[in-house]
Amino acid sequence: METPINRHTATPARQALDALVDNHEDTAALDTLAGSEVLVPVPDDIGEEEATDPDAVALPVLEQPGGEPMVPVFTSEPAMAELLPFVGRYRLVPLGALAAQWPADDLSLTIDAGSAHPLTLTSEGVRTLLARP
């Protein structure tokens, strides 16, 4: 039987997420995540010009149970396809760069939502933990 862990490509970012399950303060894992590229789904209502703008990233905002806004990003195509099988476009974005420009509102970030070891961070957590120098 195939487990969720076995279905995902063991990227360095995925391995870092797994390491953070055991130690939430693992600075090496956080550094790995911050330096990794993640797949950011492009919302359907975004035109091609805006979707490929190198100076801006359109964030796909989903509503969590309870109504809180969340942006899902993924460490691999299989991880993304598991939760969002109909996503046709995505961008590869360095997670640290995304975090450095994260909005100051209550928008959280979830890495590999739907996996065995997702990581959800508050807006403040995104900026402080992943926006590495």
Rank of each mutant, 00 (worst) to 15 (best):
A10S: 14
Q15N: 08
L98V: 11
T32N: 01
R91A: 15
F74W: 12
T75F: 01
M1H: 10
G35S: 11
I5F: 05
P69Q: 03
Q15T: 01
V71C: 05
T32P: 03
A34I: 00
D45E: 13
P4D: 00
W102V: 06
A34T: 00
P43E: 09
A19D: 13
G66Y: 11
P43L: 02
P41Q: 09
S76K: 08
D31A: 14
N6E: 15
L121M: 06
H24A: 14
Y90P: 04
L107W: 11
T32K: 00
A81Q: 15
T27A: 09
E63W: 02
T9H: 10
R91I: 07
E124A: 09
G88P: 07
E25L: 02
I46F: 04
E48V: 09
T11S: 14
T3A: 01
D44E: 14
P85D: 14
G66L: 05
G114V: 07
R89Y: 13
A116P: 00
A81L: 12
T110Q: 13
E49G: 12
N6M: 09
P60Y: 03
T27I: 05
G66K: 08
N6D: 09
A29Q: 00
L83F: 13
D45M: 05
P94S: 14
F74H: 10
M1E: 01
D112N: 15
F74S: 05
A131F: 00
P94A: 13
D26F: 05
L62S: 10
H117I: 02
P69V: 03
M80A: 11
T32F: 03
L84F: 15
T3Y: 01
